[in-house]
Design a binder for these strands. Structure first.
Lengths: 151, 151
DNA sequence: GCAAATTGGTTACAGTTGGAACCGCCTTGC
DNA sequence: GCAAGGCGGTTCCAACTGTAACCAATTTGC
């Protein structure tokens, strides 16, 4: 045949995007229903709960979100009393952000639920397949990152 | 500069989302630069080029986009003269949509480029790994889909 | 030591997105 | 054959997102 029959459903980036969206949507529903959190807010909670106090700049690196998204998420969390800002002596432009007691309590509830949801979403994969999947994603990530700037 | 944060960075849905986004962004840049197409528009082109004339309803199923997104993409493509509407005798509410000559020409250019980009983005994976990855994505897709409807 | 450039953070704005209402056609049930 | 309900497609609106402008603090270069 003259033209190779390329179907959208076989196109890897398409499949990746669709899968990622369906997973994200499912998770977003759960967080919104249970905690009233959006995914950006949840990510900030997860990082602060795991890594302790840090600036927005560090949050940008840790969550891979842009600084505006991080700022907005932090503002919401602060207004809800889940995180607190304290001055940064070493740099007057930024603050240290950390979970409040309420924030820690919520973090303690969220993480088991998150991990359980991960387990359920990927239960169709065996443990070895999950590891394999994770490592494939990480490699693709690196490759696409490198492709971004040069060339 | 990636801050190490064991939990979030190991969370599979997060890794999936980040990877999907970096891949999508990379591809979106390419289509926009070369053809002035957004991804939804490209998807419609790909499906029509592969499947021939069909209604928006069928496009919704084939592209996994919602009907508003499909409608908007079709409108843009029609205004650019890449697709054409013809009446649907069997249902007065909808039209058949198909590529024009110009649309077919563009489709002929796009597909090789798309496949090449896929090849480059996933070149870090061997052929067997790519197949594996594809099948893992498909399985996750099915699982998350099933989880959507309340149980 | 100071002007210039850079950086962390914030705000403003414009483009994008998706849910819901809406319109007209079609199907169903009587 | 017609009222009621459903469906394809379109429009509307409100929320979200990202880019760019902006401010203040810090670093750099001379």
């Amino acid at each position: 045949m003259t033209v190779r029959n390329a179907r959208l459903a076989d196109f890897l980036p398409y499949l990746l995007s669709v899968t990622s969206n369906v997973v994200s949507d499912r998770i977003a529903d759960e967080y919104r229903a249970r905690f009233g959190l959006k995914i950006p807010e949840w990510r900030v909670m997860a990082v602060l709960g795991d890594g302790g106090a840090m600036t927005q700049r560090l949050l940008v690196g840790a969550t891979r979100m842009d600084k505006v998204a991080v700022n907005r998420a932090c503002k919401v969390l602060e207004e809800r009393g889940l995180i607190r800002r304290s001055p940064n002596d070493r740099d007057g432009r930024s603050h240290h952000l950390e979970l409040t007691a309420a924030g820690k309590a919520m973090h303690g509830e969220i993480m088991p639920i998150a991990l359980d949801m991960e387990r359920r979403l990927f239960s169709t994969l065996g443990a070895a397949e999950r590891d394999q999947f994770k490592s494939l994603l990480a490699r693709i990530n690196v490759a696409a990152d490198q492709m971004e700037s040069p060339e």
